[in-house]
Design a protein around this nucleic acid. Structure first.
Length: 916
RNA sequence: GCCGGGAUGGCGGAAUGGUAGACGCGGCGGUCUCAAAAACCGUUGAUCCAAAAGAUCGUGCGGGUUCGAGUCCCGCUCCCGGCACCA
């Protein structure tokens, strides 16, 4: 047995033994509590795992291993998110079929995970592209469909011209497809949606009970975007037809008499939504989204000149890309429609404009514009010379900071930017509501709108329905048959799965149809009634597959059901779910939605799938960038141009910049687990990943850091080797009957303190301090055991008591180390003459009485400043402590010539003498 | 702009309102060695002092609460992440 950490001599051996013993197969001991620990479902990329991915898997493994040792039934599964765009794109690039390719990649992931000793139960593994899995994805589609939560409609959707498919809102970042980076275009295609909007409120409400990072919860709340307001009808003034003179300038005369309804004209009206009904008197114009159907109606009542202007603007809005539309600080654009509406609050006519700063997809697609108190409306009014009427009194501070009087402000609002938006002021220019507070008038005006019957208080969400269709081959087919008559039928459970046909050519067509549409054998079928029909040819986006896989893991081989109620009820929810923060509004929102639907359907007993969520930090590696050459332009926020390590070597220093960047194959800065294991060992890699930084913080990777952990492991091997002669295997039976001397007590004290800290730290994901405590333990043990060997008792020599305490320490050390460095622990365990695996041993228990200190160091402060410390027995009372503190020679000088006013004694901690 | 999270030695980071800097990396000094590496031992926040003893300062900035603040409160600055013309 070596006295050093020599990973190559034993790590692989233990991995083979674990496999042979089926050590990681899920235990289902009756009566034991359960723990479901899981990592995010990975897509197995061809690049393989980097040490960055290991930072996700190792900590989960540590907590799962500890839970096993604590006697929990632990479910710790791994599978692969195999369907989807990345896999298909990769296969096209390699001119192969995605199915065998993804199998190869998944096998490689599995091999790499074994290489670092992750304790997954591989007997439960599956890929989302297995027909035995997606059969049930299709079945859940049916559940959604039957509940009215899956529907098809013609929609303007995000079209990615590079990947040639439609994408969900969540997959678009800044107007570009997150994956391909292409500018997204608008395209009108019939699409499948899941009605997640029905669950918006529950998705917000139930966040409260989740033990998730606040940031992720906030992102979800934000994304769902609840706002409370009032929606009310505005009627179009049918006199508009004749209002030529005023129309061109757009300016209206606020003093003009309220217009009279025109009895004969057909009434036109539209609804607006506002969260600021208190500002309704300040409405000086209305704005419609250019694509709103109402605009077509307005065209019929205004003159030709305005129709032409409207159409020109509509064309402009339609052809503009989303990116241009979302460009920062964009100048406002828009045109006057020639029509007017009536402000119901004061009966005044307000011009109706169209502008693209109003979105057709939010609220009603139309707004009441209040330039006095909304920056966007203000900008628009300024640009087009529209009236600005303030209706909230500016506060004293506001006036002071703008060096203005109230009169001055009211007369020249246009000159004041930013717009006054305070919500703790009172109204003005608002008729009978003048002087009433903003909050109060919001309530009163809301009631007024409802009493008048023109509208109601309403809650709006930004969340839109989940677009699930993909016009791509490599995905789960949507199990629907279209009849010639245009009816739709969902394929019933007995006919599932609708299998994805194996074809050579599956490249996307780009015409808005799926490649499946060009496979007659797939498309043509008979429907439930025996009539000829055609299959739906869109496939589901990958997020459908990953919205329920955690349920399948509870019962992965079930051929008759997606899962048995018994299995799901036992294991769900996932107790600890670990992965990157980038899935905050996609996977994590979708999975919550599906779980709620399945709960409503009575298929699962939980409303939420993941009770605790942890996000690991990213692993950054030093990456070379160079200065841009002539003609090269840097993107926003870029400091240099990514270059290869090879090229960097050849560059002069002044051209080169080293930056920390996320480890990724494209940056060429990846360290693989193979390299790390080869050079330092799997346990050194694991321990370094745990120790290097807090779990959720980013890490600046260094290979040298692993050397430190290898050294630490070597010290453990050395320590165990040194202390082994003292080891008494039966210590547990003997120790209660042995009188403990001081040295033995000290060893036991340190042992039990360490057990407590390590256990707590793993539970709260503080893996860096878990490793610290082990280090401290290893540092402390030799001197303690030496003390004992040198003998506190007469004649020296190790006492029986110390030998027993050291035996306990040896076993405890190895078992506490086991989750972090399982190979080394099993090797050390065997070196004590033990059979079997540390994973099958009980996690050490902490005993308060043994961990308790006999004496404590008391800090002595004078006026809050530390002056000295002294040792006192734990039992010392306040008076004793105070006396002892006052008597200290180092304290005395600070009390000289002063009167003691007060003495604060915190037992076991400090004495603070207040004197002046 | 809005939301969330941060800021502690040369570096990564510890600290239930109670001795700031645990633990590690790096540095410095030493042991071993012909020498080096490795390993081991000691030391390591800053300033003042020949040194020790000691003193003073010190957790992004400015205030406050408290016997006592890295920690709590108010007001800022900067950094990271997310959302962003959502009415």
């Amino acid at each position: 047995m070596a006295d050093r950490y020599e990973p190559s001599s034993f790590e692989q051996k233990w991995q083979e033994r674990w496999k042979e013993a089926e050590l990681f197969v899920t235990r289902e001991n009756p009566g034991a509590p359960k723990f479901y620990g899981m990592d995010f479902f990975p897509y197995p990329s061809g690049a393989g795992l980097s040490v960055g991915h290991c930072r996700n898997y190792v900590p989960t493994d540590v907590i799962c291993r500890m839970k096993v040792m604590q006697g929990y039934n632990v479910l710790h599964p791994m599978g692969f998110d195999a369907f989807g765009l990345p896999a298909e794109n990769e296969a096209i690039k390699r001119q192969s079929h995605p199915a065998p390719m993804i199998d190869r990649y998944a096998d490689n992931y599995h091999r790499q995970m074994d290489l670092i000793g992750i304790s997954y139960d591989w007997s439960r593994s599956f890929k989302s592209s297995d027909p035995s899995y997606y059969k049930w994805t299709q079945w859940i589609f049916e559940v959604l469909y039957k509940r009215g939560l899956a529907y098809r409609k013609l929609a303007a959707v995000n079209w990615d011209p590079v990947d040639k498919t439609v994408l969900a809102d969540e997959e678009i970042v800044g107007g570009r497809a997150e994956r391909s980076g292409a500018l997204v275009e608008k395209k009108w295609i019939p699409q499948w949606f899941f009605k997640i909007t029905d669950y918006a409120q529950r998705l917000i409400d139930d966040l409260d009970e989740l033990d998730w990072p606040e940031g992720i919860k906030a992102q979800q709340r934000n994304w769902i975007g609840r706002s409370e307001g009032v929606q009310f009808a505005m009627s179009v003034d049918m006199e508009a037809r004749g209002a030529e003179g005023e129309a061109s300038g757009g300016r209206i005369d606020l003093d003009s008499a309220p217009s009279r309804p025109t009895p004969n004209a057909s009434r036109l009206s539209f609804e607006v939504f506002t969260t600021r009904i208190d500002t309704v008197f300040g409405m000086t114009f209305c704005v419609l989204a250019p694509e709103l159907p109402l605009v077509e109606e307005l065209k019929r009542i205004v003159d030709r000149e305005h129709v032409e202007a409207i159409e020109a603007y509509q064309l402009h809005a339609r052809t503009m890309s989303d990116t241009d539309r979302q460009a920062e600080n964009r100048e406002k654009t828009g045109v006057f429609t020639g029509a007017y509406a009536i402000n119901p609050a004061n009966g005044k006519r307000v011009p109706i404009w169209i502008a693209d700063y109003v979105l057709a997809t939010y609220g009603t697609g139309a707004i009441m514009a209040v330039p006095g108190h909304d920056q966007r409306d203000f900008d628009f009014a300024l640009k087009f010379g529209l009236d600005v009427v303030p209706v909230i009194q500016p506060t004293e501070e506001y006036l002071k900071s703008h060096q203005a009087t109230l009169e001055d402000y009211a007369a020249n609002v246009r000159a004041y930017t930013p717009v006054f938006e305070s919500k703790d002021s009172v109204l003005m220019n608002s008729g009978e509501y003048d002087g009433i507070s903003v909050a109060e008038s919001q309530r009163l005006l809301g009631e007024w709108v409802e009493a008048l019957g023109i509208g109601e208080r309403k809650i709006q969400y930004k969340l839109r329905d989940w677009l699930i269709s993909r016009q791509r081959y490599w995905g789960c087919p949507i199990p629907v048959i279209h009849s010639k008559e245009g009816e739709m039928q969902v394929v019933p459970k007995k006919d599932l799965p609708v299998e994805l046909p194996w074809v050579e050519n599956y490249e996307p067509t780009g015409d808005g149809t799926s490649p499946l549409a060009h496979i007659p054998d797939f498309v043509n079928c008979t429907d439930l009634d025996g009539r000829l029909g055609q299959r739906e040819t869109d496939t589901m986006g990958g997020f459908a597959c990953s919205s329920w896989y955690f349920l399948r893991f509870t019962d992965p081989h079930n051929e008759n059901e997606a899962w048995s109620q018994e299995a799901a009820n036992y294991w769900m929810p996932v107790d600890c779910y670990v992965g990157g923060a980038e899935h905050a509004v996609m996977h994590l929102l979708y999975a919550r939605f599906w779980t709620k639907v399945l709960y409503d359907e009575g298929l699962v007993s939980v409303k939420e799938p993941f009770s605790r969520l942890e996000n690991q930090g990213q692993v950054l590696a030093m990456t070379p960038y160079r200065k841009p050459r002539e003609g090269e332009v840097l993107g926003i926020g870029e400091e240099g141009i990514l270059t290869s390590f090879a090229e960097a070597k050849a560059l002069p220093e002044d051209q080169l910049m080293w930056r920390w960047a996320r480890m990724s194959k494209s940056k060429g800065n990846v360290v693989t687990p193979e390299e790390a294991v080869e050079q330092y060992g799997a346990d050194a890699l694991r321990m370094y990943l745990l120790f290097v930084a807090p779990f959720n913080a980013d890490v600046q990777w260094s290979n040298e850091g692993m050397a430190g952990q290898a050294r630490f492991l070597s010290r453990i091997f050395k320590l165990v080797d040194d202390l082994r002669p003292s080891y008494v295997p039966e210590w547990r039976d003997l120790i209660p009957f042995e009188e403990m001397d001081d040295a033995a007590k000290k060893v036991r004290r340190l042992t039990h303190q360490t057990v407590k800290r390590c256990t707590d730290d793993i539970d709260r994901f503080a893996f860096n301090t878990y490793v610290s405590w082990l280090m401290k333990y290893v540092n402390g043990l030799p001197s303690l055991s030496r003390q004992s060997r040198d003998g506190e008792g007469a004649g020296g020599g190790e006492t029986r008591a110390t030998a027993l305490a050291v035996s306990e320490a040896l076993e405890t050390l190895i078992l506490l180390l086991a989750p972090g460095a399982p190979h080394s622990s099993d090797e050390l365990w065997a070196s004590l003459g033990k059979d079997g695996f540390t994973l099958n041993e009980a996690w050490p228990r902490y005993e308060e009485s043994l961990a308790a200190e006999e004496s404590v160091t008391i800090a002595v402060q004078v006026n809050g400043k530390l002056r000295d410390t002294f040792e006192a027995p734990v039992s010392a009372d306040n008076e004793e402590l105070e006396m002892a503190a006052k008597g200290l020679p180092k304290v005395q000088p600070h009390l000289e010539g002063k009167t003691v006013r007060k003495v604060i004694v915190v037992p076991g901690k400090l004495v603070n003498i207040v004197a002046n």
